[in-house]
Amino acid sequence: MERKTKINAEDGKQDLMITREFDLPLELLFKACSDPEIIEQWMGTKVLKFESKKHGSYQFETTDAKGNVVFRANGVIHEFSPNKKITRTFEMENTSFGVQLELVEFERLTDDTSKLNMRVIYESVTHRNQVLQLPFAQGINMAHNRLQDIVNKLK
C-alpha cells in the first residue's frame, strides 16, 4: 500500500490536492479529523474551539515556550457529513496568505484502510505558491536560528 502523502499542484493553478492512504478504518480517520483533542495532537497546535457541525467554526493557536502567540488560524465549517466530507475555510491570522477553501473527502478502501483527499483552493495562483513556499522559507529561518545559536555560543 502506498502510504506516502502526495501533493498534486499543477502549474499556474490556484488549487492543490493532498492525498494520503491510511492503515486505519474510515471511522477512525474521520474521528482524527473531527475530534478537537485528537486534532490538537497531530496538527501540533492548540485547538481553542472546534464545532464539528454545519455552520460551526474553529480556531487554532500555537504559542512558544514564553507564551507568545506564533500562529493563529480560524475558519468556518460549511459542510459536515460524518465519514464522508468536511468542507471548511481556513485562514491564518495576521498574514497575507488570504483565505482558503478546503474540501476534505474521506474514502473507505477496505475494512481496515481508508483514504483522505483534501482539495485546497486559494484566492490566486500567487497565494497558493506563497503557502507552498512557506515551510521552505521556515526551514531556512530555522537553519538561520540554529546558526545564530552556534554563533552565540562561540562568543
Binding site: R3, K6, I7, A9, R20, F22, L24, I38, G44, Q138
Partner: peptide, 20 residues
Amino acid sequence: FIEPFRNMWDDRFNKLEAIM
C-alpha cells in the same frame, strides 16, 4: 520547492495514524 510542504503534511499524517 514542494517537498518541504509535502513533508510537513506527511509528518502530520504519520502522527495521526500512530495516534489512532
